[in-house]
Design a protein around this nucleic acid. Structure first.
Ligand SMILES: [Zn+2]
Ligand SMILES: [Zn+2]
Ligand SMILES: [Zn+2]
Ligand SMILES: [Zn+2]
Lengths: 147, 147
DNA sequence: CGCCATCGGTTATAAAGTAACAGGTTCCAG
DNA sequence: CTGGAACCTGTTACTTTATAACCGATGGCG
């Protein structure tokens, strides 16, 4: 996962510095969306000088390059699970959708073409040129519904 | 608009108190989404004792009863423009969509059935039981695209 | 070397949201 | 009408989330 990020950065002339790489690793190893300050606490374990700007700057980079997404409803960040699957990352970041389980906190990333199309059509009908889309559905995941 | 809210509250046994009514008025008269603290500043002009809880509690009530919506991407609130059109308000609040112009800041409220259906289908396909949905599209509105 | 751009450390502050308690009001059962 | 429960608001203090501004270090490049 991190190696793929190295490769993607090399290909785009972006610099996945040790700090950025470490933050990406922390986000990826979190089973749930992780907040910037939780990330900061983890980061402090190895970087005593870490402060909010440290983590926010790294997150800005990772967001910009599509390695992580922000879940707006949670003010938290998730690693992109399709970053290594050959999508157009830039586009993906603008159209990704999340299913957020309100019980266990699990977040699943989707990229459903019909959702995207329906939104694009609705926007066009209103004379609106769509850009970045935030689509987040709160509900109950399969596992929690069974239990 | 406010009169309609009075009527809706009376019909549901909810109490649209002077404070809540005033906050709703402030949200409705704002041409753009308005943040809680901007709201607080306006509120202070007539209520010297207003503090964050004052406005957040009023907003909680207004959100719960569907008179306003929160735009997650902006941490700001908009008056519901369809609250008086006989929709099922409770359901509406869970499925409303926003088109947010990044240039002029204008926000248009939508409730597109095909978007909702596409999302419900995508969620079901993942074994997910959907609840409240956040759908926000950032882009350029018709007016700004022309200019 | 001297210059520029990028990165990250550091301090401070802004913006957004909540907890907890106290006093007042409304409303209904008795 | 009285007493208590539920609700509403004032008030203080605090937490969480995010950004501004400044600085030195690093590294490429003419
Ligand atoms: Zn992704
Ligand atoms: Zn779950
Ligand atoms: Zn609405
Ligand atoms: Zn516009």
């Amino acid at each position: 996962m991190l190696d793929a990020a190295d490769a993607a950065c090399a290909a785009h002339g972006a610099r996945l510095t040790p700090l950025r790489r470490q933050v990406l690793g922390l986000v990826l190893e979190s089973p749930q969306p992780i907040g910037a300050y939780a990330l900061l606490d983890r980061l402090k374990e190895s970087r005593s000088g870490a402060a909010p700007p440290t983590v926010y700057r790294a997150l800005d980079f990772l967001l910009e390059h599509g390695f992580v997404h922000k879940v707006e409803r949670l003010n938290a960040f998730v690693g992109c699970r399709s970053a290594t699957e050959g999508h157009d990352h830039h586009d993906h970041a603008h159209t990704v959708q999340f299913l957020i389980c309100g019980r266990c906190g699990h977040v699943q990333e989707l990229e459903d073409a019909s959702v995207r199309a329906a939104l694009a059509k609705a926007a066009a009908h209103a004379g609106f040129t769509p850009g970045r889309m935030t689509v987040e559905v709160e509900g109950t995941c399969r596992d929690c519904a069974r239990g």
